[in-house]
Nucleic acid binder design. Structure first.
Length: 493
RNA sequence: GGUCUCGUGGCCGAGUGGCUAGGCAGUGGUCUGCAAAACCUCGUACAGCGGUUCGAAUCCGCUCGAGACCUCCA
């Protein structure tokens, strides 16, 4: 199959034509969350970005296997000998089993991504479920001569690897070994590592370390970067199409993944590396230490001191889609409120389209040209902001048709509906928001209908004192009446 | 300190050598008893300085400012 999709490859720092290794199959691996606390919004942006990418690949007809791991063990807290992994540290603090922590936050993670309308990946492997495979890969790397054991721990020998593979370590992130050495010299105490740039494949567990497994070298746990190499190659092969993650993982995590895979399998594991950009909050980086953080549920409920009001997951998703995945994006009340209005306008136009009466011919809109512009935007490295700009062109046309200033033929109407549904719901992954104020309470709906009817009577009698009184009193309750030709609707502010 | 990215109109945010992105806000208008809502109209911005070019927001250099990575981080 042939498509015109181009993707930005971090490895070449260029947009490249997307040609899967074995079309129509596409293997995509995305680095998932470490489940030791609630998933935060920055994480969500990354996964929403890759959800978009997944959805568009599916839309184009690719048979995608999307693998996203759950890191439930192994990421070291620090580089010191007494290093412990994040899961076990948290477990001790809360006096529960590590897997209890893992379960709690995994459930939260799934719940939040579901609210954002993310499709689940095809495989969601866990690090603790692949200890055996990780041990095997370490053994392979040792056998190939790129790792060494010290006191029960195993380290990757970066310099030997680099000598063998033409100074490739750093090719993804643009690092040079010499510079890295210079930068790390002062941090290097009496490490077991031969070189400061080496990294752990297996760590011997200290007596207090809870999560531990048997291995040929010691009772311990796997190193930081190994799980992704192991699980991606297990489920997608030694060489696959797309590997993604946040750009903060580029170095060292992804760099180390390349080295591990290449050391074990002698081939580049990934054809297209894709990295998403960071999310900031009120102009500053999200950080727990400064308190500038926001959890998804705090955003949805409005229960936070960072933003002026609550925002629904779908509005947030739309907001994210208005920026390109490789650009940084800032969360603020003003920006989100603007997105909310735009989203409502788009959704309103979709409803308007359904109700349009078809005419003989279509005027003032070139459907074919519009369609190809939409696809061109998505084909250009998933440029959703441009796509959305084109969607608003269609909105404008729909409004004009509704006003009788343009017309649409029946076949074009059906085609436009189909395309808009594809772009808005299938690809961007938006959905119609559930009824907000009205609809959730029959009693309130009934009462409101009575009040609105009474006001209508008063207006017809030209008793504006009464009709305005009704309107003002409702306004005081934060209920806004909206008059239109079709009648009066209401909304809670 | 090293490596790198970025600085676009009131706000958000695309674009990247010549041709109005888009959304929100704002302006003026239509509608309305009045308003709100809705719909229509309008807006010539690209940090500063210098250079390349017939032509630069777009390329090059410098200055200023912001951010990322270099340590766990999506």
């Amino acid at each position: 199959m042939d498509t015109n999709l181009h993707v930005y490859n971090s490895l070449s720092a260029k947009k490249e034509k997307f040609e899967p290794i074995k079309a129509p199959f596409v293997g995509m691996y995305v680095c998932g969350p470490t489940v030791y606390s609630y998933v935060h919004l920055g994480n969500c942006r990354t996964f929403i970005s890759f959800d978009l990418i997944y959805r568009y690949l599916l839309h184009l007809g690719y048979k995608v296997r999307y693998v996203r791991n759950i890191t439930d063990a192994g990421h070291l807290e620090n580089d010191a000998d007494e290093g412990e992994d994040k899961i076990s540290k948290k477990a001790r603090l809360e006096a529960v089993e590590p897997m209890e922590i893992v379960q709690k936050y995994t459930l939260d993670f799934h719940e939040v991504l579901d609210k954002f309308n993310n499709l689940p990946p095809n495989i969601e492997p866990t690090a603790t479920g692949h200890i055996v495979e990780q041990i095997d890969m370490i053994q392979d790397i040792i056998n190939e001569g790129f790792a060494y054991e010290v006191n029960g721990s195993v380290y990757f020998d970066v310099e030997t690897y680099n000598a063998k593979f033409g100074n490739e370590y750093g090719k993804l992130s643009g690092r040079k070994i010499d510079e890295l050495m210079a930068g790390t010299r002062d941090l290097d105490g009496q490490s077991e590592k031969r070189s400061p740039v080496d990294f752990a494949l297996w760590k011997k567990a200290s007596p207090t370390h809870i999560m531990r497994w048997n291995s040929p070298w010691s009772v311990g746990f796997p190193g930081w970067h190994l799980e992704c190499s192991v699980m991606s190659s297990k489920y997608l092969g030694d060489s696959f199409d797309i590997h993604g993650g946040g750009m903060d993982l580029k170095f060292p995590h992804h760099e180390c993944e390349i080295a591990q895979c290449k050391a074990a399998n002698h081939q580049d594991p990934v054809k297209y590396w894709m990295h998403t950009n960071m999310l900031t909050l009120n102009g500053a980086r999200m950080s727990k230490s400064t308190g500038n953080t926001l959890l998804p549920n705090e955003l949805f409920t409005g229960n936070n001191d960072k933003l002026e009001k609550a925002f629904s997951p779908i509005v947030v998703r739309f907001f994210m889609m208005q920026a390109h995945y490789r650009s940084p994006l800032d969360f603020s009340s003003d920006a989100l409120m603007a997105a909310e209005k735009g989203y409502l306008r788009l959704m309103g136009a979709l409803n308007d389209l359904e109700e349009l009466k078809p005419a003989e011919t279509t005027t003032a809109f070139d459907l074919e040209e519009w369609k190809s512009k939409c696809y061109a935007a998505m084909d250009d490295d998933f440029n959703t902001p441009i796509l959305i700009a084109h969607l608003f062109e269609a909105v404008k046309f729909i409004k004009a048709a509704k006003d009788g200033k343009a017309s649409i033929a029946a076949t074009d109407k059906a085609a436009l509906q189909e395309l808009l549904n594809a772009f808005v719901f299938d690809i961007l992954g938006l959905e119609k928001e559930e009824q907000q104020a009205s609809g959730d309470d029959e009693l309130v709906d009934g009462l409101m209908k009575t009040i609105i009817d009474l006001r209508l009577d008063a207006r017809q009698r030209k008793d504006y004192a009464t009709s305005d009184r009704i309107r003002d009193h409702l306004q005081n309750l934060n209920i806004v009446l909206k008059d239109s030709k079709e009648g009066t609707s209401w909304e809670k502010e």
